[in-house]
Amino acid sequence: MTDTHPTVVILTALPVEYTAVRRHLTGTIEERVHESGTRVECGRVSDAPWTIALAEIGEGTQNAAALTERLTAWLAPRAVLFVGIAGGLTDDLRLGDVVVATRVYAHQGGKQSPDGFHARPRAWDASHRLGQTARAALRGGEWSALVHFKPVTSGDVVLNSSVSTLSEQLKHHYNDAVAIEMESSGMALAAHLNGAVETLTIRGISDRADGQKHLADAGGSQPRAAERAAAAAMAVLRKQEPFGGGAAPAGQPATRHGGDHIDFSGGTFHGPVTGKVVNGPRDEG
């Protein structure tokens, strides 16, 4: 079967992020369910050469790592994007601005000793290919004043204070990070271990991590930031031509036979089944 519409997985953590991305899917949207229960919705984006497999995975680095691994093994995508919201760490970011992460830090590693905290950071650079496409797609026009290509930092803590221990740690050890969120380091680690999938994080700034999160949220900052991030992601995918190989066509789950062989037979999967199509045919023989 010709691989005409290779797959990109888009991960989201929150319903507001999922909804923002899903609004961009067109045509027939098909729900697919992994044998473990993980669900994605697969659809197309107008003028883009990709099938999008959209997942809402919940918050945190552990969820992101585990489900990135599962979804890449199941759907064999060319790339995984995390699209959502984040807290801003620098004064030059405004609510609604978009950060395309050039690097993702995992900020919680370290050693606590009598003379203080000593960071032991891990970091993963964004895909060069996707980063270059993002710069081209988001250059000029309305995007030029909204988009920042900078590092972000990620960990399992919601930061809502500019005078906390964590805030000081980030300023001291991760001085170039402009936003904080809770999932991208897990995605980046899983993709790094996979070795065959490229990643990119795109985040809309919904608060300033300064103790005023409740006011920003009440003003509707989360939906606005999520919509901006989703629109930026769609612009990148429209610009990015398909690359690589081995992805499942049109979002179909990949069935692997003992090694690296992937078999597609018109929607009927032969051999060990790693996922299922809801109400779709399957060969149980």
Rank of each mutant, 00 (worst) to 15 (best):
A196Y: 12
G275Y: 03
V16Q: 14
I29A: 12
N175R: 14
L237F: 12
A247R: 10
R122E: 13
F149A: 08
V104A: 02
L170V: 10
A216V: 03
S184E: 01
V157I: 08
T12Q: 10
L25H: 13
G275W: 14
A216M: 05
K171S: 08
A226Q: 08
Y18P: 02
G110A: 02
G96K: 05
K213R: 15
G280W: 06
D210R: 08
S164T: 09
R282H: 14
G244L: 11
S154D: 02
R39C: 03
G195M: 05
D283Y: 15
A209P: 06
A216L: 08
G258I: 03
R39Q: 15
E198W: 10
R120C: 05
A13L: 10
A123G: 11
N279V: 10
A123F: 02
S164N: 14
N279H: 11
S154V: 00
V104G: 03
D91N: 01
H214N: 14
E142F: 00
G267Y: 11
T199A: 12
H118P: 06
E241R: 15
G258K: 10
A190V: 00
G275F: 08
H148E: 14
M234P: 10
A64T: 07
G88C: 01
A196I: 00
A190R: 07
P249I: 01
A233W: 04
F264W: 04
H24P: 02
P281Y: 13
D91H: 03
S161V: 06
A65P: 01
Q108S: 09
A53G: 09
T2K: 09
